[in-house]
Amino acid sequence: MKIIVDQDKCVASGQCVTAAADVFDQRDEDGIVVLLTDNPPEDLAADVHQAAAVCPALAIVVED
């Protein structure tokens, strides 16, 4: 699994952190997404896919 985030598209909703807090975080100053790991363990796959699905800017792409 590989994760790509587009910080320019990100709208800082934090929905991804709510879905997968071990993989995504937000910058303190503006809330833009920060990837904690771009290749997380497989047991987080469902959470990561959920995060990509609920992102209101579709700024997260997951490649299996």
Binding site: A12, S13, G14, T18, D28, G31, I32
Partner: peptide, 10 residues
């Protein structure tokens, strides 16, 4: 203008 904290307050 407090995005990260707003999510916490959710």
């Amino acid at each position: 203008n407090l995005p990260k904290q707003t999510r916490v307050h959710r």
